[in-house]
Each structure stands twice: as C-alpha cells, then as structure tokens.
Design a protein around this nucleic acid. Structure first.
Lengths: 340, 340
DNA sequence: AATAGTTTTGCAAATGTTTTCATAAATTGC
DNA sequence: GCAATTTATGAAAACATTTGCAAAACTATT
C-alpha cells in the first residue's frame, strides 16, 4: 500500500495522483455526496496509494473544530478518576472526539497552566474535576468561552454545568446510617481538604450530621490521612490500639476504609462485631471484602458518561441544554457495619 | 484583564495593539532574544490586554511539533494502566508534551482506528501497550514514521523500543517460588489471552515452568476469568468448594488474586495455612492485605516514566538512543504463600 | 558628522487545508 | 439536437501562523 516515496503526502499530492484539483480531494472527505462516483473511487485509490492522512491542524485554523476535549483530573491513578475518565472518554469517542488528558495533583497553579495548554491546542471543550477552581481558571474559560463542564461534584447553582454527585449529601447519608444503627462513639478518617472540594464537603457534612444528633467526635478521633491504603491502615491501627475505641469509624472514601479494614484485621478486631467501618464511593472491589463494605455509591461511570455526553452536545450545538445533572449517591448496605 | 471585545484575538490583533508587525509578535514567542527589551515589554502588555492564546494548530502546519503524544492503552481504569499513564504523562509533561489518551478495550480494530485519529492530530509520538499489534498498525506507524514506544511488555528483539517487564520471566519467577516452597498440587487462575500478549506470556510461562518441574496442572484447575475481583472470587470459591483442593493457587495478576483471597475467606480457608495464593503485579494495596500478598512486582510507575522519557527524547532528537529497557520484575515475598 | 557594523523590525511567501464563486460537464425537457 | 437546468469540478482567497530576506534603526568608530 502506502508507498510514501520520500516526503509526507498532502492533499495536493493526492490530487495530482487522482488527477483532480485539491478542492475536490477536500470535498471527498467533507462532502463526499457532492462527488461523482467515479471520481470518488479515483480519489479513494489515490489516498490509499499515497498513504495520506488528513491534517486536523490545517483544518482547525479554518475555525473547524479540533475534535479534542481537554480533561483535567487531580490524578489519573485513583480508581475513581480512572473510572470517570474511562467512561467520559468512551462517551465522547462515540461523537468523534479524542481527549487530551492531564493531571494537576491538586495544585491550582498547575491547573491553570494546563488549562492554558489545552486552549493553545484549541480544544473544543473542557472538563474539569470539582467546582472549586482558581479565579484565574474561571476567567480564562470565560474569556475564551469554550464549552465547559465540571465533573464529579454536583451543585445546583454552579456557573457551569456540573455533573456529579452531591458529596455533602453523601456524607450526610452515611453518617445518618451510622447514627440510625445506634452508634454514638464514632471516629472519622478524612482525606485532606486542601484543593479538594469533594473531600471538604464530605467531612463537613459528616461532622455536622453527627453533631446535629448530639454526637461529638473528639479531636483525637478526627483523623486525616492522604489517599493511600497503607497510610490509612497505619492511622486506623493506631486508633484501634488505644484503650478507648469507637464503635464505628466513618471513612471519607473507600480507599481509606480499605486501610481501616486491614488495620482492624491486624488489630484482631472482627467486623462488624468489634467495630463497624463505613466508606464513601463504592469503589470497584468494595463489595467483595468479607464482609462487604457498607458505603455510599458515587456512580463514577454514570458521571463520566453523562459529563461526556453533555459536553459533546454543548460543543455540537451551542444552544444545547447546558444544565448539570445530579447523579444521586446511593446507600449500599453490606456487612461491615452493624446495629448496636 | 483580557477584554476580548468580540472576536477571538489572533497574532494580528496583538500586533496592532502593540504597534508592531505580526512577525515581531511571532518572534516574541519563538525567539524572544531577538527583540529589543522595550518592544518585548510592549508586546507582553498587548498579549495580556487581548487575552491572546497561541494557536498550536497554526504552528503545526509549519512543520512545527504539535506538542502532543498519543497514548493507547487497553483500558484506563485498571490500576496498572492508570499508574503507567500517570507516570508517563508526568514524564512527558516535564518536556512540554500533552497526551492524547484513548483506550481500545483489547480490540485490534479499534486500536487501528484510534491510531489513525492520533496521526490526523499529527501527534509527535505514539505509545502503545504491549508488543502484539495488528499488521495494519505496524504498517501505519512505519509509513508515517512517527517515533513510537511499546510499553508494558519487554522483549529484547522488538522492532520498536519496548519498555516494560518481561512477563514471561514474571510468570517463571512466581511459579518457581511456589515450586521451591514444595507445592505440587497447584491450580491456576488466568486472565483471557485474546488480544493480550502480557496475559498470554504469563500463563504460558507459568504452565511451562510447572511442567518442567513435573507438576501438571489438571484441566479443571486451569481457570480463566475476566479482569474482575467479583468474577475471580466466584471462580475461586467454586474451586475451593471441591473435595480435592490445591495447596497453592497461582493467579495471573493481583486483581484475580484479590478475588481468590476473598473467596478463601468466604470458604473459611485461612491463608496461608489452608491455601497459598500468589499473584503477579504488586498492585497498589497488595501489600496491605492480612496477610500480605506474595507476588511479582511489575514496576508500573517506572515503566511509564521511562517510556515517557525515552519517547520524548526520541522526538526531540531523532538520533537519540532508541533502545528499549527492561524494568525487571521482582519477587515480593509476603505472607500469603507458605512452605509445605 | 559620516561611515561601517550591528541589531531590530517589517514584508512577503509559505504552510495544508476549506470554501465561495465561477465555469465546465452532464442531464433533462421539448 | 438545442436550450435550460442541474450537477460536478476547478481557481483563488482565506485561515493563523513562521521565516528568509531586506530595510530600517541604532551604535560604535573615526
């Protein structure tokens, strides 16, 4: 096939090979129905022979869409973001878009810099994680007015369509469940809130809900740990080693809960008899523990898919419905938490 | 700032605002050292005032690099690929590249289609997963001669630089370890090999190594299951429920091993006394089980980082060293496997 | 104050497409 | 078999940049 004898082939070399004008080749790709069947065939053959591949960069400077969407997540290698990205990518791929992916590691500065880079590439749309961003980020989006969605965290009054779960609600749900089961001695294991509005919303809601029911979490039972099984295991183990132990431990997400479960095993505590542990997220695998983890499901795949579809629609039709969507969290009761 | 009064700003509007010619603005970005300090200042101000963002598409048609790298993985939401992608992305970001990411779901047809799309975007380089690809894929890369690396699986004689672990070796190592501990009644739980040379290499090596030691794995102890904790849990549970049980179960990867560990717990088997379970991968969290999972570490982050650096170097300097690299697997002995 | 040399800037052509408008070719109606 | 349509193709301008070359603006030297 493609016998590129030397230089890269462009639309002109194809035109020569097919003995038509460059415009006709352009039409072959963009409005094939305008061409006579025979010329279409001729061009098709020439394209194959030359091994020609369309140049989107050249199209893009004509104001034609670049076919790319910039996706910005805190980090790719957390199950939950990986799932969102996968679902998002699949959804927009169906509409012909390819994603530019980058991670900022919870650094607002980096987020701004990456966003600029996306815009240099003239992405057709942007998907950010969370609602909380640097003022400069919002200004940039505003000034370039490129379609944007905010994934993961939902808030009705958001400036841009937000598609995700209400993390405050999730925190509320899990603590209400724990309270309903009669727990009063409750400890918490949170992810750090810096640059992470999801984590912040959850911890806030959890503590408020408990407080509203008259349950005060003592300072030394409010643990904070980075997103890591080993770290949370260490901290939870320490907690479990104290003389006075909580009857329930609420974790800010399932990864932290996973660490806590292992810590319990190591401390010789049986779930749920000796201690109840709950999480938030319902990550892949959370259902498979023995006993399964009681948690609040945040529908990552649904969020990613929905966000992708909304953004693609907004790009293709500027007047499309740009309202966000709440992908409701859902209490998933398994065996890791019992009534007292 | 950026008070875009209407239309998007281009290099010409900036030039007007700074009272210089467009060429000078272009030089401001590409060869600032050629400009007088005062004009540089003037342009800087104009750029800010106009909210101008460079247009990489327009640069790209001048043969200038696009600054993008196409990354193609089977799926994003497997821990292991997420880690590789994260490390890869970080590495190339340092060199100014942004990644175009897509997943093919183990479908060779889709891989080809995505690759074409990458090339339409004029990516500066390509990173594929695994060594085994459709002939058309190789032809395409060949014809466009764009720098390419193959990640994840290592083979010395590969046509393109391959950066990864020797999966065959990994399989060999884990089975040798199991054999050395005296196990003879060994079962296996593999991932499907279709479109997945990593999985294929591992299963092959495991069975061969066992056979070489005179251990034959009966047909009904050779289980195959998709990459999923719940599926492998189901299958392993079934295996454990039979009257005749193996003393050791070798799993094709840590996810499958995770399922098997849960299955053992449900079946009331204690690790490692009642059954030994080992995996391959050393995924995040594998060390935290109680007891920890004995496995062979495939250094995902190192692979991703190294692959990114190699590719970036190959792009920037066509004569750069393009040999692959073997990121050696490493036996990690924890508590899930005991001597018999 | 004039010259030579150097630094800085602008002009115009080039890049690979798309698109508008005009023209040529094919088809239809009589 | 000719005019009137309709359909298919080409020429040229446009898109947002970069770059080679030449002109202009400075500096330094006398």
């Amino acid at each position: 096939m493609s016998d590129r004898n030397g230089k890269k082939s462009d639309i002109i070399s194809v035109a020569k090979a097919a003995r038509v004008s460059p415009s006709t080749v352009s039409r072959y790709f963009n409005h094939p129905e305008l061409l006579k069947l025979t010329t279409r065939r001729r061009i098709e053959k020439a394209v194959r022979k030359e091994g020609y591949i369309r140049n989107r960069a050249a199209q893009t400077i004509h104001g034609i869409r670049s076919g790319t969407i910039g996706v910005l997540v805190p980090t790719i290698d957390h199950t939950i973001f990986a799932e969102v990205v996968q679902a998002f990518s699949d959804a927009v791929a169906e509409e012909g878009f390819t994603i530019l992916l980058a991670s900022h590691g919870y650094d607002p500065q980096r987020e701004y810099a990456i966003l600029r880079k996306f815009l240099e590439h003239r992405v057709d749309g942007i998907a950010l994680t969370g609602l909380d961003h640097d003022e400069a980020v919002f200004q940039l989006i505003e000034s370039q007015d490129v379609p944007t969605v905010m994934m993961w965290n939902y808030a009705a009054e958001s400036l841009y369509p937000s598609i995700g779960a209400d993390n405050e609600l999730a925190g509320q749900m899990i603590s209400q469940h724990v309270l309903a089961l009669g727990h009063r001695a409750v400890a918490c294991l949170f992810a750090p809130g810096a640059g992470n509005d999801r984590a912040k919303a959850r911890s806030r809601a959890i503590l408020n809900t408990l407080a509203a029911a008259g349950v005060v979490v003592p300072q030394d039972w409010q643990l904070t740990t980075v997103y890591s099984v080993s770290e949370s295991k260490r901290q939870a183990f320490e907690l479990f080693s104290n003389a006075r132990r909580p009857t329930a431990l609420i974790c800010g997400n399932d990864i932290l809960a996973t660490g806590a479960i292992y810590a319990a095993a190591r401390a010789g505590l049986k779930l749920p008899d000796d201690i109840s542990i709950v999480g938030i997220g319902d990550f892949k695998g959370s259902s498979e523990f023995e006993p399964g983890l009681t948690t609040v499901r945040l529908p990552a795949r649904r969020i990613g898919r929905r966000a992708g579809m909304t953004l693609a629609a907004a790009i293709k039709d500027p007047d499309a419905d740009r309202t966000g969507a709440h992908c409701a969290p859902e209490l998933v009761i398994r065996g890791s938490c019992r009534a007292i």
